[in-house]
Design a protein around this nucleic acid. Structure first.
Lengths: 343, 343
DNA sequence: CTGAAAGCGCTTACAG
DNA sequence: CTGAAAGCGCTTACAG
């Protein structure tokens, strides 16, 4: 290789170079640069100065190998959650990646294709030991999750959980969030309230449904089966929303995107929002602000969730026996214009 | 560490384990698993079989260190391009990450904070030699780019370029795309056509503007300065769009998001789109489908751009003298409902 | 406070 | 076709 031709820098600088230059050992250099005991302050400063001057950069690979740790965390997102317009999980990934960086780790994103997910093909980064653990972002098929668990590598579920396995997870408090949103509708005078979402699709949707249901129960309101409307099939692919003959006065939607779609559909059918029908979303993602009217919705605390997930996975990497259980992070209602006060 | 307690797997399996088990040397194991010459087919198969049985995973760190390469590429996105709703570059990152994986590389995302960008703080992954090269995604401040170039590490610009430096870049063909979009408006009978965008903000916007201008020239149409309208300040922060007294019959917007905002503004001012004013966007991102009407726009070929960028950066990592220059990838017009035929 | 020795798990010449 | 030796660039005991 002829790198020298371009930058006149034939070789990267190593600790040995610094050591020779200063007439000390590499051990001393290592200790100094890592601020460990056993080097006089004077010498430490001299070594650091020299490192700076010579543009020394540590070779993390060597350090990693010695420690048997890569300081990388894999983040797996099923491809079906990252469609054309879906950006929620990618934003999440951005947050995770930033938090990981603060902890001196790096994230490696793995978009899990539907095919690999079905056929239990684990990511290359697993087989190459490029990561110390995984954050699974978004509900992954059970068979795949089980295979991952089998490997014994540290794992955290993020934004979903699975009762049948004993894995730590960080989820938003879907139940309580939906409960509060529904309470808000009741406070605004709504008595007939529907729910949009396939409750067999993901645990998040199921919990949001149950929070909605709890609010109805507490307020002695009817749960009308006609008002529980599917928005996707069991695998998560959106289907047309079939509106019932008679509409409730408000809908709790399992996510903003569906609320957005519902509003279009209502408008096409001649209804106004929130005039005729009030709508609340969930997630506070882009759909909540591009919808017209803008959506009253529940904001997910992505930052807090990412922080907890990252801390947990690092703790598990450091000690495989650590267990954090199922951590729920509360959201916060964002009040906008999609809910109407009902006399 | 007490990992053994949980999984009864006290230690990762190494080549040495396989070698001992089969009574051969680690050299032979290495050759077999890497399909190199110098091992009988018979033995190769036996070794691979054993590796499978024992759940052997290569330790990439060791390999990497030996080769002096991490097989990671850093992707830097300025934070200001990843706001609440902006997902374009994150989608791009998803694509890049998938392509990198196909080439046995991994991507490490670095969201560059405004502060670090201003103060020339290079990413930690650079100082730790965690990556072999960088893809710079989105126009980064010049001082920062120059500092990165100084380091001598291989770099590719993606989705922008900088004339003042001699760096390889992969961009969409903004000029030709805007030219074609504008031609389409002219074909539909429009004679007075405006442009929305700050042409001093990024090279992309500038090129789109010039493509628009070329179409006007070719069609002998007036470039009316009143119809060139700013949408953001020089650093990219959106500002209010000030509509002129008299409107043109169509607008070329420098991106979908701005087209989306323009349509809101036009509607507030009592105009209909495309009835009174036609609008075309650029990017074919989420704003093009949530806009009402949906936008006629130019689709960026993210996949192709990512592929070329990844191939280029890998080529440069392998040989620092490689240069690919400025590669332009063509887009494709997506026809939707925001353009009106004008008698 | 300082350093010689050993080792992390591979791969690359080179010798047989 | 097979393997002993050396080395990648660090860090971790341990000895002085």
């Amino acid at each position: 290789m002829i790198r020298g031709l371009v930058f006149l820098k034939s070789r990267e600088i190593t600790m040995r170079d610094l050591a020779e230059k200063l007439g000390v050992s590499t051990v001393t250099v290592s200790k100094a640069l890592n601020d460990k005991e056993g080097v006089s302050d004077e010498l430490k400063i001299k070594i650091k100065q020299m490192a700076d001057d010579m543009g020394y950069r540590i070779n993390n690979l060597a350090k990693s190998m010695k420690e048997g740790r890569s300081y990388n965390i894999g983040v797996i997102i099923p491809q079906r959650f990252t469609g054309e317009v879906q950006s929620f999980y990618l934003r999440f990934y951005q947050e995770i990646s930033t938090v990981l960086d603060q902890f001196q780790y790096s994230g490696i994103l793995h978009i899990l294709s539907e095919e690999d997910e079905v056929h239990d093909v684990l990511p290359r980064i697993y087989y190459e030991k490029k990561v110390d653990g995984f954050i699974l972002l978004g509900q992954i098929y059970k068979n795949y999750v089980e295979d991952m668990i089998q490997t014994g590598i540290p794992i955290i579920f993020l934004d979903f959980y699975d009762n049948h396995t004993d894995i730590d997870s960080v989820v938003m408090d879907n139940f309580y969030g939906a409960y509060e949103l529904t309470n808000h509708l009741v406070d605004q005078g709504h008595q007939e309230i529907g729910f949009i979402g396939n409750i067999f699709s993901t645990s998040s949707i199921q919990d949001r449904y149950l929070g909605y249901y709890k609010s109805l129960l507490e307020n002695r309101l009817q749960l009308n089966p006609d008002y529980i409307i599917h928005d996707r099939d069991d695998r998560g692919t959106f289907i047309d929303i079939h509106l019932p003959e008679k509409l409730p006065s408000a809908f709790v939607c399992n996510c903003d995107q569906v609320a957005f779609r519902l509003i279009s559909q209502l408008r096409k059918s001649g209804y106004t929002v929130p005039g005729d029908v009030s709508v609340v979303g969930f997630d506070n993602d882009i759909y909540s602000t591009v919808a017209d009217p803008q959506l009253t919705t529940l904001e997910v605390d992505m930052h807090e969730m990412s922080k907890v997930a990252v801390k947990s996975i690092i703790a598990k990497v450091q000690n495989h026996t650590v267990s954090v259980g199922r951590v729920q992070i509360k959201g916060r209602i964002v009040y906008r214009d999609s809910v109407h006060l009902r006399g």
